[in-house]
């Protein structure tokens, strides 16, 4: 039971006191004690991971793939991600140089933001949004510019975006769709119009499209289709393939940015876990049918 002295504890980075553990998880933990409660709190698929995904993880463990993986993730998985992005969203990312495998979309977000932001940088965040964006920005000393979209049916409009970019010298926009928490998403036309505004500024767009496989009205269209040169595309296997616990996320972006993001990935986790990567390779390559069962 080591006890730290108050004076030493006071020496930690003062930002830490302003950071809170994720509010969603905290609330979930709090209500978990209520007898008989039905919790619809966490974005956690109730499906188990498909059997062939599990088989791939087991085979990886049995084959003693217990040694360090490649820094950016196994090439097989990066190729599977590249193929997935092409097949599903008509995107063109090279497995060699434009994709990195991360520990969930969370690491993808955190390392990407850390790569582009320095303390004091402004970042436009449409709200309501996933609260972790604000937490990560705060931890990096960046300044969130929250844009309330409730007035427009929870959609950011080109006019709203243009106004914000006029008033703020923002370094980046965090753009999440289909949206957590609203479920709202954007049509191809809406994206094209927003991209036209973004194109007029030297601004990074962090597109968090982790829910891309869950669109029920239209097929998902990626922002990267309209704005490939400015987009840092974040996604992963967690939600679509019901494999949150495998923690497989990825970033796709122009190669020079991936080079930079790779440094922080290496400093943060060294590399991903082989059995998770083997599982995700099968997910992206062979489990389109399993996604549809989510109907």
């Amino acid at each position: 039971m080591p006890e730290i002295s108050a004076t030493l504890l006071n020496r930690i980075n003062p930002i830490m006191d302003t950071l809170k553990p994720a509010a969603i998880r905290a609330f979930d933990a709090q209500v978990s004690d209520v007898p008989g409660i039905i919790k619809l709190t966490i974005g956690e698929p109730d499906f188990d991971a498909p059997a062939k995904i599990k088989a791939a993880a087991v085979a990886s463990i049995k084959n003693n793939e217990s040694h360090y993986g490649k820094t950016r993730g196994s090439l097989a998985l990066r190729q599977a991600i590249s193929d997935f992005l092409r097949r599903k969203y008509e995107l063109d990312y090279s497995a060699d140089s434009e994709i990195i495998v991360t520990v969930g979309a969370m690491e993808a977000l955190e390392t990407s933001l850390r790569t582009i932001l320095k303390p004091g940088d402004e970042v436009i965040v449409p709200t309501p949004g996933y609260p972790m964006y604000l937490s990560i920005l705060k931890s990096l000393g960046a300044v969130p510019i929250c844009v309330n979209t409730a007035v427009n049916g929870f959609k950011l409009t080109p006019q709203q975006l243009a106004d914000e970019l006029y008033h703020h010298n923002a370094k980046a926009i965090i753009f999440n769709f289909p949206s957590n928490p609203t479920g709202v998403t954007y049509t191809a036309k809406e994206l094209a119009e927003l991209a036209a505004v973004m194109q007029q500024h030297d601004i990074f767009v962090l597109a968090d499209e982790i829910y891309s496989e869950f669109t029920y009205a239209d097929h998902h269209v990626s922002l990267a289709k309209y704005l490939p040169n400015q987009t840092i595309l974040v996604s992963g296997a967690s939600k679509a393939y019901a494999m949150t616990g495998y923690r497989v996320g990825f970033v796709s972006a122009p190669a020079p940015l991936i080079n930079e993001i790779t440094k922080f990935h290496q400093y943060t986790v060294t590399t991903h876990i082989n059995s998770s990567m083997a599982a995700a390779t099968v997910a992206f390559n062979e489990c389109d049918a399993a996604i549809s069962l989510g109907d």
């Binding site: 730290i4 969370m106 495998y246």
Partner: peptide, 25 residues
């Protein structure tokens, strides 16, 4: 491993960085 008051803070950045570890590992 560290004093609890410190682990509490470090855990926040763990959550921001990776959410949590992989169950099988």
């Amino acid at each position: 491993a560290a004093p609890a008051a410190l682990v509490k803070h470090i855990t926040k950045l763990h959550q921001y960085a990776v959410t949590t570890h992989v169950n099988s590992a």
